[in-house]
Design a protein around this nucleic acid. Sequence first.
DNA 1: TAGCTCGTTTGATACACGTCAAACCCTATT
DNA 2: AATAGGGTTTGACGTGTATCAAACGAGCTA
Lengths: 249, 249
Amino acid sequence: MTENAHSTTNALKVSCSNCSLRELCLPVELSREEMTQLDAVIRQSRRLKRGEALFRSGETFKSVFAVRTGFFKTCVGSHDGREQVTGFHMSGELLGLDGIAANAHGCNALALEDSEVCELPFSRMESLGRDIPSLQHHFFRLMSREIVRDQSVMLLLGNMKADERLAAFLLNLSQRFSTRGFAANDFILRMSREEIGSFLGLKLETVSRTLSRFQANGWITVEHKHIQLIQPPALKAMISGCANQPAAH
Amino acid sequence: MTENAHSTTNALKVSCSNCSLRELCLPVELSREEMTQLDAVIRQSRRLKRGEALFRSGETFKSVFAVRTGFFKTCVGSHDGREQVTGFHMSGELLGLDGIAANAHGCNALALEDSEVCELPFSRMESLGRDIPSLQHHFFRLMSREIVRDQSVMLLLGNMKADERLAAFLLNLSQRFSTRGFAANDFILRMSREEIGSFLGLKLETVSRTLSRFQANGWITVEHKHIQLIQPPALKAMISGCANQPAAH
DNA sequence: TAGCTCGTTTGATACACGTCAAACCCTATT
DNA sequence: AATAGGGTTTGACGTGTATCAAACGAGCTA
């Protein structure tokens, strides 16, 4: 159940070094001395319980965070109560890059399960980047990747129908679990139907109905938060031609 | 008409230096020597005619581009023909940041009118950033700003109704024209109804109908591509509470 | 100037998704 | 173990936007 997403050998070696960062988000060739410098900058990891906020919109920006273990959502809110989930984030992904622009975080980041993150003080990462070109370059790449991801979410929200969105969402999760060494076709959703709906621009009832329809078609099984993909090709067929890559985080 | 958006004194001094970049996208305090270094890196500006592509998705990434004059759209396409406009871009804005991630451009950039851009070879900007910390920091801020913009587009596409989207779109254009010293409430749309629709996740007929309704309400006037905002507060009221900032580029 | 093409407007109709509502079933709390 | 609360499913119905279609107008070409 939940176990299979945690006990399996993790291809990215989440738990080896100081903070696992070099393997996870910074797969860069570094000399021994450079590694030492990097380890000195990376702050001790921080634990969060389910529901806890890593940061909130408006807080002054000091650091970006790398997810070591667990699961996060980021969302932007409006003062009339509406909120839009802008992404779901798992191990090896970076949170808080949107805060650099205004020196203040631009979204809320909430743990969807007990989680652990590394804090990367941004100004120190910046100066370290000046000494280590490959590190600087990698940081630019990470920010660019976030922009690319956002573009594919726009495509999803702007062009796709409810069932296409759901299919893209499930396949994207599948692919990301797979990359991390977890089962690609058997996983637990960490978020509620409402949160999925918010991310996909749908209402929770539509999410629920669409999942039921996929199950009735024999493409997936749904037991509460436990999802199995039975016919991934059927899901892929829905979105073939819609996107360059299946959208999202 | 079209003139008033071009003849007016431009607060950002588009045409003063080599490439106007220091004023436009890189408002950074630089020493005389640093300026010389920067000017050496910025390549001669390039002119494009209406309809011409600055770059296309898949091309190898070498440079980002700063718009000097003119108007661009960026869009991601799917192989079945659908396309999603991801943004509209005017003077002082940077294009191509999404290409860093994969060393290949991730979208198409097309000139919507005769335009002029500066080419910034990225690897040279990167190394220059190592010598000039404030330049490096500014580049990070620009990329972060793009992420923030994308988030507000997601909010628009995920949460807002057709008329709210149009109102946000018009107000965003208005604000950006105003920033550049052009009239805030009287401007020419450089893009078609279909392109607006693609950007906003609507069909062109819906865009047209909604504009007509705004005009019938006395909030705006529409003559083909010439738009006047008569009651900006009425438009603001539509989206108050929907977003932190009115979305888009 | 005439004629064609393409973008735009407007109307009639269809449908996907949202809304409202009720019943169900986990999970958590005491 | 009993109870309360919240997330989920499913149904009936309403509505906003898409779709299909036709007429119009502007700009371009010959």
